[in-house]
Nucleic acid binder design. Structure first.
Length: 881
RNA sequence: GGGCGCAUAGCUCAGCGGUAGAGCGCUGCCCUUACAAGGCAGAUGUCACAGGUUCGAUCCCUGUUGCGCCCACCA
């Protein structure tokens, strides 16, 4: 373990001030919690609807109360936090609104499971009221877990506005919308085939069904007798007891004679008609289909077209209800029993087993779905989905990245009516009452339910996505026209995973446009990918590769996790993440930490105006020039949700340019002191100030600690967002580039010669009258070059970028290593010459390529020629080995 | 069955008509007083395959192969 209490030793004991307060390693655990509590106490995250500032709003995709924060949440939260923090710094009234979803079926299942395990009871044993009371208690106990995790992550949410989909306000919103839609004819009750889960004992919507390939059986059964018979193929033999027809294609000549006739249904005493329907594919199986309208969505449609009876033969648990030997059997037992009975009668013509086909499963409990004829509540989606599609089509809402919009359109343009009633107890109860004489009354939140004899309320609750669909405005106080709603609706960005476009995004669009008079709930939909493991594999319990974000936050700090997630955030694509990467981000945080320590120890400051350019050294002007460019680059990436590119740009600017070059170049300046040191101190202070502010939205904790230490100001959370100074200095950039070339070249030579990094070597620098003359001290310092003494004898001479560095290795030079290095360089230069010469010898190229490209190639050829001449000369001077 | 996307360094991914990039990993030397959670230097790619367009293709087009995802009423 690291001893975080250690202090930087200062040999002269003079550095008593701030820098000594920073230990040599960044210890996130010590500061994160304290900083977060301070931010909350100071109310930085609380948004004021009365503010004059423009609003910037994001509502959180409400996590399920059952859940805990997983890496996917951490990922999206990092991005939302970064967006709202930056906007806050830019002077917006920035609101990030937190909350949770009651997650009807998921939560109910969880509590039922717990109840069964601890008390061996079912929810029916408790009764509705006691059970929902139990769920509320459960919510109070476990619901706060994820909120604590959000604090750990550093989420800058407005806790004073925390909402829950089942709280009073949101329940009012749900009932208000329901009533309005009912009155508008957009909500209705109808008996149709729905997806029924025989375990959860509720209907679920189409998108809550997961299809997977299962091994089943395809059996061919002869229906009818003699001439009046045909063979049907089915995977669901057990439903034959509910068959009310056989369908064939109208153009199928094989069966033309049978259409309109009735044939005997085996195992029963019924006869059923043969009908012609274009739905049937003559190529599949025998070209004849058994029709069970009450237990199959296609058959239901056929049944409607041909006015067939709907015969229910399975109950809500999937047991056979038809009278006879099979009654009471579970659907899978019944399947084999019926096939066996038919086989005995010689009616089984063929059996294919296993027969792999797609079967629907309950997305909550994996139980095989039973399509079932049932009376349910529906949303008529046609007009709503049309509006939701149009809002994107006409550009009022932008989907980012744009190629995700095709998926959105696929859905909204082909959406079926939405089954919204659930036979659950945990959720918003449907506000409809039924009277003794068949009255049906839908009530708003302020209306008194009818009381007389025989009235009863609908037992069902609403699909959990119904209330989540209202989230962008219900959380702001709708249906009241609250100041919050006026100020913060419509929200700016909806940032969520592309996996819930249909569940949530499209529904929010429909409800928002409907309830808010055509104002879409957000301007931009920013879709993220899914977090995966370090090999790009899906994280799942069965793979055993699920990571608890808290583990990594404990080990490496929240900033490290956040930076890693942001670094992987290429819009719309999945995000692989591994522990090594988090470690690397931790190292980056530590690097910033130490660079700031260095700056503080050398008198870097943010006080006073920046010195004028003519007072600055070239490296000062260079880094300020680069800083301005980076500010603009970073802004562009933030605006475009390009967090990976943003992180990359800031990482490289900070590490490669500021820390590796600028800081190294200033060391000699700081050593010498005086005015130049003051100038560089001010510039370094400026660079770090801006850099820390640019990084803050992504890595809030380490930047807060360093920025407040550096500037002595209150908090970077409420600091101004940096602006590009507009200062650019091409000459300084060229000069520093040349300087880097010289230093790199000599370092390469030293490494090839096997010189120890610290070994001092006498050298003579011939910097001519070039700009590099001003950098001689820095060059000597960075390259460990001593002044040439009396007996200096150059054993190696390195010409580079117009200057020459001569070194005295006291005869110890390794000529072979040097020859190898030069030969390699020569090879590269010759390859370059060959390529460029070939291009310039191509008439088509000269005629058709743009001038600037041709010029560039010419310049490269010129450079290659010069390099070749120089290297040959150096090689010639080497003694023959 | 329909639609979309991806194949680039050992791994994970950027790039995108005009000299192949990053992070991690790897090799060598170094505890050079901001940082060994570090410094310096280095190695590694027929940019999946086959055609085409172009002066020029990793990039555009077509096809092939291999992956991945989404949608669908696959009896």
């Amino acid at each position: 373990m690291t001893d975080n209490s250690q202090r930087t030793p200062h040999s002269d004991g003079s550095d008593a001030a701030a820098p000594a307060d920073l230990p040599t390693q960044y210890a996130p655990a010590e500061v994160e919690e304290r900083l977060y509590e301070r931010w909350v106490e100071r109310g930085y995250f609380e948004a004021d609807p009365k503010s004059d500032k423009p609003a910037y709003t994001i509502v959180i995709p409400p996590p399920n109360v059952t859940g805990s924060l997983h890496l996917g949440h951490a990922f999206q939260h990092t991005l939302m936090d970064a967006l709202t923090r930056r906007k806050r710094m830019q002077g917006y009234e920035s609101l990030w609104l937190p909350g949770m979803d009651h997650a009807g079926i998921a939560t109910q299942n969880k509590v039922e499971q717990q109840l069964a395990e601890t008390e061996g009871k079912s929810r029916q044993d408790l009764g509705r009221e006691a059970f929902t009371e139990r769920v509320w208690r459960w919510k109070e106990e476990y619901g706060g877990k994820i909120l604590g995790q959000m604090r750990r992550l550093g989420d800058g949410v407005d806790w004073s506005r925390e909402r829950f989909t089942m709280d009073d306000g949101l329940s009012r919103a749900v009932q208000t919308v329901f009533k309005r839609m009912y009155d508008d004819g957009l909500i209705y009750r109808a008996e149709r085939i729905i997806n029924w889960c025989p375990r959860c004992l509720t209907a679920i919507s189409d998108i809550e069904v997961d299809y997977q390939d299962d091994d089943g059986e395809l059996v061919s059964i002869r229906y009818g007798e003699g001439e009046e018979s045909l063979v049907v193929a089915t995977t669901r033999a057990e439903t034959m007891l509910g068959d009310t027809a056989v369908a064939v294609h109208p153009d199928d000549e094989r069966y033309a004679a049978l259409v309109g006739k009735r044939i005997k249904l085996p195992l029963t005493d019924r006869t059923i008609p043969v009908v012609a329907d274009t739905h049937v594919d003559p190529e599949f199986g025998t070209g004849a289909v058994k029709v069970t309208p009450a237990h199959d969505p296609n058959d239901f449609a056929i049944g409607q077209r041909h006015d067939l009876p709907m015969l229910t033969v399975l109950d809500e648990r999937g047991n056979i209800t038809a009278h006879g030997p099979f009654q009471g059997l579970d659907r899978f037992e019944a399947r084999s029993a019926i096939v066996a009975a038919l086989r005995e009668q010689g009616r089984i013509v063929a059996e294919k087993r296993p027969y792999t086909h797609s079967v629907g499963h309950c997305s909550r409990c994996r139980t095989t779905i039973e399509p079932r004829l049932s009376l349910q509540w529906w949303v008529k989606v046609g007009p709503l989905a049309q509006a939701a599609g149009d809002a994107v089509r006409d550009g009022r809402v932008r989907i980012h990245p744009a190629d995700m919009s095709s998926r959105y359109f696929d859905w909204v343009d082909h959406m079926h009516d939405w089954c919204i009633s659930r036979q659950l107890w945990w959720g918003h109860r449907i506000p409809v009452w039924y009277g003794p004489d068949g009255e049906v009354v839908c009530l708003g939140p302020d209306e008194e339910p009818p009381t007389g004899e025989g009235w009863r309320r609908d037992e069902d609750v609403l699909d959990t996505w119904f209330s989540s669909g209202l989230w962008p405005f219900s959380t702001l106080g709708w249906p009241e026209r609250t100041p919050d709603l006026e100020k913060f609706y419509a929200t700016d960005v909806l940032l969520t995973g592309h996996d819930i476009i249909f569940f949530w995004v499209a529904r929010m669009m429909m409800f928002g446009l409907y309830a808010m008079d055509g104002t879409p709930p957000f301007h931009t939909i920013a879709l993220t990918g899914l977090v995966r493991d370090e090999h790009g594999k899906k994280m799942s319990k069965s793979f055993g590769n699920v990571v608890d974000p808290l583990d990594w936050m404990d080990a490496y700090g929240s900033d490290a996790l956040r930076f890693t997630l942001a670094s992987g955030a290429n819009p719309g694509t999945d995000v692989p993440i591994g522990e090594d990467w988090v470690k690397a981000s931790r190292n980056f945080a530590n690097k910033i930490w130490n660079a700031t320590r260095f700056a503080l120890m050398n008198g870097a400051t943010v006080e006073g105006p920046l010195p004028s350019p003519d007072e600055m050294a070239a490296e000062d002007r260079w880094i300020l020039s680069r800083l301005g460019a980076v500010v603009t680059e970073a802004d562009g990436f933030y605006e475009d949700y390009q967090f990976a590119k943003l992180s990359d740009a800031l990482y490289h600017f900070a590490w490669d340019e500021v820390f590796d070059w600028y800081v190294e170049l200033t060391k000699t300046t700081f050593q010498k002191g005086g005015r130049p040191a003051e100038v560089s101190g001010r510039v370094l202070g400026e660079v770090l100030d801006v850099l820390l502010r640019l990084l803050h939205p992504i890595v809030p904790f380490v930047t807060e600690t360093l920025w407040t230490t550096l500037t002595g100001r209150e908090s970077v959370v409420v600091a101004d967002w940096p602006a590009d100074s507009g200062y650019r200095d091409a000459a300084a950039e060229r000069e520093i580039d040349t300087l880097q070339q010289v230093i790199t070249e000599v370092r390469r030579f030293r490494a090839d010669q096997g010189l120890q990094p610290g070994q001092r070597v006498p050298a003579r620098l011939d910097l001519g009258g070039t700009a590099l003359a001003a950098h001689e001290d820095a060059i000597r310092s960075l390259l460990r070059l001593q002044p040439a003494g009396e007996e200096f004898a150059a054993t190696a001479s390195l010409p580079v970028a117009g200057v020459t560095v001569a070194l005295d290795l006291s005869g110890a030079i390794d000529f072979e290593a040097e020859r190898k290095r030069l030969t390699k360089d020569l090879g590269l230069a010759e390859k370059e010459l060959k390529q460029t010469t070939a291009k310039l010898g191509n008439e088509g190229f000269l005629a058709k390529a743009p001038d600037d490209v041709v010029d560039k190639i010419r310049a490269r050829r010129g450079q290659a020629e010069a390099d070749i001449a120089r290297i040959r000369e150096q090689l010639d001077r080497l003694p023959r080995g």
